[in-house]
Every structure is written in structure tokens, then in C-alpha cells.
């Protein structure tokens, strides 16, 4: 893998991660948050590519673990969105009142 290809991959990965982050902080409903998280996981998958040139088999194992665990997390978030809709009758992030700390 050439240096220019490596830089393209890392710059693209960082740009997608940044877009996902901006989408997450500007989201007003949980669907948007889910989309932002999937985008950020996409950026993480992309940053794994250079690892394949050094240790391909281990990198494939890491990719499998990342894909499965992130899928599990997102599936739980989807279930949480549906549960919240049944409880609160809306999916706005502003209606999530518990969780986190107040400074």
C-alpha cells in the first residue's frame, strides 16, 4: 500500500467520522442518532483497511468482531427506539430525561 493511498483512507475515515459526529450532536430524534452512529461505525471499518497490509488474518478477525459487536449495539438501539416510542409516544432526544451527569 502506497503512502498516498494510506493518506486517502485516513483522511476519508476522519471526514466520515466528523460528519457522523456533527450529525449526532445536531440530531433532534433518535432515528437521526442511529444514522449518525452507523456512519461513525462505517468510518471505523474504513480505518481498519491499512491493518490488512501488515497482519491480514488478525485484521480479518478484528473486522469480524467489530462488525458483529457494532451490529449488536445498533440492534439494541433500534429495540430501544421502538420501546421508547411505545412508552413516550415520541422519539425526540429532548424527551430523554434520564442518564448522564449534570455539571
Amino acid at each position: 500500500m502506497q503512502g498516498i493511498e494510506l493518506s486517502i483512507i485516513y483522511v476519508t475515515s476522519f471526514a466520515i467520522l466528523l460528519m457522523g459526529y456533527f450529525t449526532a450532536i445536531s440530531s433532534k430524534d433518535l432515528i437521526r442518532l442511529l444514522i449518525a452512529l452507523e456512519l461513525m461505525f462505517g468510518a471505523v471499518f474504513m480505518s481498519l483497511i491499512p491493518l490488512f497490509s501488515a497482519i491480514s488474518n488478525a485484521a480479518f478477525g478484528i473486522a469480524i468482531i467489530t462488525i458483529f459487536t457494532s451490529s449488536g449495539e445498533l440492534l439494541v438501539l433500534i429495540a430501544a427506539i421502538v420501546t421508547m416510542d411505545r412508552e413516550r409516544k415520541n422519539i425526540y432526544t429532548s424527551s430523554v430525561t434520564i442518564g448522564g451527569d449534570k455539571l
Binding site: T12, A15, I16, M19, T23, I35, L39, G42, A43
Partner: peptide
């Protein structure tokens, strides 16, 4: 194309189009 479609996710106001652009970004990745 991946960066542009991820930018479209941020800029579009409709969640449906945002999810379509997100899928396009992941296909590009």
C-alpha cells in the same frame, strides 16, 4: 463519493434521505 454522501447525511433534513445516503456511504466504504 463516500465523503460527499456522508456530508449529504448531515445536510439533508429528511431522515429517510439521510438513511439512504448513510447506506450509500457504507457501500462506498
Amino acid at each position: 463519493v463516500a465523503v460527499l454522501s456522508s456530508l449529504a447525511v448531515l445536510l439533508t433534513r429528511d431522515n429517510f434521505y439521510a438513511s439512504m445516503f448513510m447506506s450509500a456511504t457504507l457501500v462506498m466504504v
